[in-house]
Design a protein around this nucleic acid. Sequence first.
DNA 1: GTCTATAAAGGGATAGAC
DNA 2: GTCTATCCCTTTATAGAC
Lengths: 215, 215
Amino acid sequence: MTPPRNPDETAGKSGRRDELLAIAAGLFAERGVRATTVRDIADAAGILSGSLYHHFDSKESMVDEILHQFLDELFGKYRKIVAAGLDSRATIEALIVTSYEAIDAAHSAVAIYQDEVKHLVANERFSYLVERNTEFRDLWVGVLEAGVADGSFRSDIDVELVFRFMRDTVWVAVRWYRPGGSLTAHTVAAQYLAIVLDGLSDPAALSKTIAAQQN
Amino acid sequence: MTPPRNPDETAGKSGRRDELLAIAAGLFAERGVRATTVRDIADAAGILSGSLYHHFDSKESMVDEILHQFLDELFGKYRKIVAAGLDSRATIEALIVTSYEAIDAAHSAVAIYQDEVKHLVANERFSYLVERNTEFRDLWVGVLEAGVADGSFRSDIDVELVFRFMRDTVWVAVRWYRPGGSLTAHTVAAQYLAIVLDGLSDPAALSKTIAAQQN
DNA sequence: GTCTATAAAGGGATAGAC
DNA sequence: GTCTATCCCTTTATAGAC
């Protein structure tokens, strides 16, 4: 009855296929796609490797399906945020919080994406990864430019560079963030936003620096 | 017999061994270690795969040597910076500039480290990667704590989290930075420091002064 | 849906000739 | 320092029985 909601972590009760996919995702994320053999996946599932091919065409198809499900869900949320028409600072905040929530909820899929996208894009089959990256870029750059235009963000920044910076810095947290650990996604998002928006410097020290530079 | 000086990019004149290592590093960085076969390396060098074993024990030894050379050089520079006893803000700046310079000068080695460290540490042979990571952490956390103590940095930050944030955000630039491209390592470092230290937000009243002084 | 059995190709590494 | 020749293991994937 319940359609599969979570592309990761939960096997759900939607059948053997999703269960196998979740097992594969965990192994891919932990060891890397290439280092994970179909026998590893079969072993972890308690079956023999040949039996996997009753469910999937190939190992590549499993990766494809994991990433596709994850990206569909994530971009659905991104589009809703942008469509809400909040001001630029609130939009950036919502995008970042949503991204950290994705790291929490779909940890394996994010890890796989981060580790493999560079190599996967060479494959015709994964050309949608390039399209998603372009949409992602346009979306974030648009918000940053709007923020510079309306005075929310500094005008002396290189928008393209800040975009890459934010994209990478948010997702790279998948390397150390552990779902269910002491840090929640919202705690991490809040600290991240505090640094990126307002800076690491003590505001008092900043005024001192400026005062010193004016002398 | 001449000791290899450059861990990356340059074959130098120190012999065939270093030349082969540079070729291997380029392929490892581009395609991933696992996806690069010894036959790929041999092809790129214009020899047959068996001949590689005259120079190296194994593929693993090549990776080991590339990373070891790179880390020795980098940590030599880090230690000098800390030993110089600059104030905390200047120390952070120097560490970050040095790191971006490493991305420029040893691009392949940084890429290999970033892509493979997670999987390599499971191997006894690469336990020095864990030690280096610990030294790196202690070094950066020490500077951050000193900065909070002396009032340079905000006191409402989670130092451990900021350390991870800075570590990851600096190195992840290897994914898009291209040595010899239009952006120099120093330009990127300057923009990075501008964001991390002073924040993305336009600091209202002081904005014009800051913008004018930074241009 | 899983197992048995196996094909077919790829990949790391070695020994000895040149 | 490189080549010839090759071993041996791993891995993806298939066909058909149960």
